[in-house]
Design a binder for these strands. Structure first.
Lengths: 246, 246
DNA sequence: TGGTCCGTTTGATCTGGGTCAAGGCTCTGG
DNA sequence: CCAGAGCCTTGACCCAGATCAAACGGACCA
């Protein structure tokens, strides 16, 4: 609780490293961040922001998983992003939210009031710079996901999602990057379907198929073991291992 | 040729307004931009950059259309972005390209050498700021497209693409935002299929269907008339008119 | 004037994933 | 200990869009 989780600098007493914000901040800047910061918790399933709402804060996910979702008038939905701990939420310089944000699991957010955050950004170029980098990362991720949505089969989609979650998990689990990987699915079948542009029945069937074929092992419905990440990546149609394995 | 196309400031003698770069630059900054600027032309079909290549420039499309494409090892491709005149290419602060960029029609690019551009960015906060805004726009567009790819039917996909092209065209055609719209398709059926996650046969069939149903009129294979934009938007499943019509 | 090349259209057929429907687990609360 | 609610799985069937195949049409060239 008092030992840093990461070796990076953190803003004030915040238990996570804000990737976007304070990786390179000095003491004064951290203090300024602390002054405009507050925490907020959401229960699993709760909305955090609705598309079009005025957002008066930006922030980072501290724990739990949040999702970004687009919705059509007739109710069809597509998840367009997953927010894992340390991911940034919000659009400096923008009034409203562009999509619905909801808590997929219980979520703790570290928020910064938007106006003062933007002012701080103005006079702190490296924060603006870091924010640009981070937005470029998100753009890359979004465009990679467009390939998944547009061209991959249901089985490849599932494998891609599992690979992403495993990889993200690994970055939070020191020394985790081996061939065998174990993690918990933070999403229901329905949420996976929303992310993958599938129905929950197809998600369920394909997970069963991957299990039958020995690509994954399941303990209960959520706890996943991948005996060999390379095989999973092949199933994802993604031999370029995304920089994940040596 | 000597009269400005746009009423905005432009960098030096460049015939387009660089949305990202010089909308708010002063004379000194424009001069600095001019000093590191050069033009380059590409024929339709030519590659501009390959994914993974080191990019030593950033720039804007001056005329023509370029595409961003993701490719899988087995040859499946997904177009992840369209670059129309005034769109920005390149990733300040990044070494390599993340996707293939190719000229879809003949293209003229206005390029800035990357190193000096980044230096200029460092000491010119409003350029960095504008770049962030623009990247956020691209991110929004990418995420909107994820909904198209993941959840829309073939007919809706085609209608969405036509609506986007019409809208983009309108921004370049003063006074063009009426209900009736006329434009040329800058893409082959195959390129449309790549963008929409379909096959070219399906694209062709759905275009024929939209024509049969009177949503669009075709003169040759490329010249499109939309008698009533609202009907097209409905077909796109996108009643929120994207800020296009009053 | 007639190839031939390339993008496009159209037809016939097949199939992956959607839809509808019926249970099966597992946790919670009475 | 049972009932109910949420998820999840599995089966049967269907359809939108993929695949395979043929032919069209306009631009270019000999």
């Amino acid at each position: 609780m008092n030992a840093p989780i990461m070796s990076q600098s953190r803003c004030g007493d915040c238990p996570i490293r804000h990737r976007a914000v304070c990786a390179r901040c000095n003491a004064d800047e951290l203090e300024a961040l602390d002054a405009i910061k507050y925490y907020r918790t959401y229960e699993a399933g709760q909305p955090i922001i609705w598309s079009g709402d005025v957002m008066n804060f930006v922030g980072s996910v501290v724990s739990g998983i949040a999702s970004l979702t687009q919705t059509m008038e007739d109710g069809r939905t597509q998840m367009v992003g997953l927010l894992l701990p340390s991911d940034f939420v919000g659009r400096p310089g923008r009034e409203g939210a562009a999509y619905d944000v909801a808590a997929t699991t219980d979520v703790v957010m570290c928020c910064f009031r938007k106006k003062p955050f933007e002012e701080l950004m103005e006079r702190t170029p490296h924060i603006a710079h870091r924010l640009l980098e981070m937005t470029l990362d998100e753009l890359d991720a979004a465009r990679e996901w467009m390939l998944v949505l547009g061209r991959k089969t249901a089985r490849e989609k599932i494998a891609s999602l599992l690979a992403i979650i495993a990889r993200r998990d690994a970055t939070l689990t020191p020394g985790g990057a081996t061939n065998r990987m174990v993690f918990d699915l933070p999403l229901t079948r329905e949420a996976m379907a929303d992310y993958l542009g599938l129905t929950l029945e197809t998600v369920s069937r394909q997970i069963s198929a991957l299990k039958r074929d020995g690509i994954i092992e399941l303990e209960g419905k959520r706890h996943v073991t991948v005996p060999d990440m390379r095989r999973l990546m092949e199933e994802a149609g993604d031999d370029s291992d995304g920089g994940f394995l040596g």
